[in-house]
Design a protein around this nucleic acid. Structure first.
Length: 468
DNA sequence: GAGTTTGAAACT
DNA sequence: CAGTTTCAAACTC
């Protein structure tokens, strides 16, 4: 799995931050370290200027994709991938794309400009996305407007999986709408994508950010994980990989009419969680738990419902995965990246890792590892902590904050709303929640700019954000 | 691989 | 806020 790195330096982040090296997050370098302990993290934190390489990427600006380029990411082998695909629904999002405060030009305008100036190509001359492996990564231009319909379709799900996750196949959205799974997950489209006219690339950073911001303004939770897991400790979940965590629920619920919530059309089902009262589905038969309260059925049943296809292999991998999960205990892992992932449900979707993973999981496959889990830990535990004191000075929009993460917004479910455009209040984000963030920041050294102090200083840069 | 179905997202 | 349209994934053939 080769996830493209969020090469902000190329996209412009470098210039923005070049003068603020000291503010860049060292966590980047931390990515290179496979095993991290809390002490490691802390020590790194204390050495903000460790290495030049560390300065390259602003911690906050780190795109989820970044994970893929790091050594640690490399260790995200197939197994890890499987793990992610099977147990984690996806990215969290609070802010994979750091919000920007400076980029305010309209998205459309931006797009138009780009289009006009570079109607056929990668958009910006001279700019090129660096790929881990140029040989296998087509130039942006290639991927961009060509519209080569015959592009590899992501059907290479099985074997191709070795390469990583399948990505989007957008044709009209330019990968700048939530239709695009990559965009929705807060990650840049990369080589594996078969999208056309894609703007979800580092070279279009501003466009992406502006669009993201726009979408978030409309729906603060737009980039939040769709599936929320309540409180069960990760480890517990790992121990019951065959069970559907009753606490895990789709944040907004599905609205299925014909699929009976038995197919991946259903977001709940896809996320490996049962339907809940929040769902407006009809004829719900969600194997993970029905809206009416019926609990999850056995794994076998789920398999029947979804795909029996890769049962055997799956079983084998499940064990591996379960073991991996344990391996990812909070004690052994700290968020090694500012992926901003909050809590992804530690759910085992009905999809074998080797088989078709939930679409959304493709993403998770990329970053479902330690960060996600850890994040869950951090967010689920200390949440009870007093949030009232810290961060009071941070101007970062609440919704962009850690606190605004689904975890915290678990109660934000809009039961009957077709759409979720929860007002801030509805987000469960109260003014005094700010405190929580600081707390979290302290707990997660890899989010330097999360300290808030940085964000105010560099509103236009990635480091400004937030996780914000 | 093409076409259809589905439901979320976006739009009106 | 409800209805409609657009979109891309999921699915079927």
């Amino acid at each position: 799995m080769r996830r493209r790195c969020l090469t902000f330096e190329l996209a412009g982040g470098s210039t923005k931050n070049s003068n603020n090296n000291s503010k860049l997050h060292p966590s980047v370098s931390s990515l290179s370290s496979r095993k991290f302990t809390l002490d490691d993290k802390l020590s790194i934190l204390s050495k903000p200027e460790s290495s030049s390489s560390q300065r390259v990427l602003p911690g906050i600006g780190l795109h989820l994709n970044t994970l893929a380029t790091t050594p640690s990411d490399r260790m995200v082998t197939k197994e890890t991938l499987a793990f992610g695909k099977r147990f984690i629904s996806m990215p969290c999002s609070t802010s994979p794309f750091p919000p920007i405060t400076a980029v305010q030009k309209s998205v459309n305008k931006s797009l138009d400009v780009i289009k006009d100036e570079h109607p056929t190509g990668s958009g910006v001359p001279g700019l090129e996305v660096t790929h881990d492996d140029a040989s296998e990564a087509p130039a942006d231009g290639e991927n961009l407007m060509q519209g080569s319909p015959k592009k590899k379709k992501r059907k290479s799900e099985n074997g191709g999986e070795s390469e990583g996750c399948k990505r989007c196949n957008c044709k009209k959205s330019k990968c700048l709408k939530l239709y695009c799974e990559c965009f929705a997950a807060g990650i840049y489209c990369v080589e594996p994508c078969s999208c056309q006219g894609c703007f979800n690339k580092p070279i279009h950073e501003e466009t992406v950010l502006a669009t993201r911001k726009q979408i978030e303004s409309r729906n603060p939770l737009a980039f939040a994980p769709k599936v929320i897991r309540a409180s069960k400790p990760v480890q517990d979940m790992a121990e019951e990989t065959n069970k559907t965590p009753a606490s895990a629920r789709h944040k907004r619920g599905c609205n299925c009419k014909k699929s009976s919530c038995l197919k991946k059309y259903c977001e709940c089902f896809q996320g490996g969680v049962g339907c809940s009262a929040s769902c407006r589905c009809e004829g719900c038969k969600n194997a993970f738990g029905r809206k009416d309260g019926a609990e999850a059925v056995h794994a076998e049943d789920i398999m029947d419902v979804s795909e029996k296809q890769q049962d055997e292999q799956q079983d084998g991998q499940q064990n591996d995965i379960a073991q991996k999960n344990e391996h990812y205990s909070p004690e052994s892992i700290l968020p090694i990246t500012p992926s901003f992932e909050t809590c992804r449900p530690f759910v085992k979707p009905p999809f074998p890792s080797s088989g078709k993973p939930p679409r959304s999981s493709a993403l998770s496959a990329c970053y479902p590892t330690s960060q996600t889990l850890r994040r869950c830990e951090f967010l689920s535990k200390p949440k009870t902590v007093d949030h009232s004191n810290s961060l009071a000075n941070d101007d970062t929009p609440e919704i962009l904050r850690c606190d605004a993460s689904p975890n915290n917004s678990v109660k934000i479910i809009s039961p009957n709303g077709k759409r979720v455009s929860p007002p801030h209040g509805a987000l469960g984000i109260s003014p005094n929640r700010k405190g929580g963030r600081k707390l979290i920041l302290k707990s997660i050294p890899s989010f330097p700019s999360l300290n808030g102090d940085v964000s105010n200083e560099h509103p236009a840069s990635y480091s400004s954000d937030p996780l914000s």
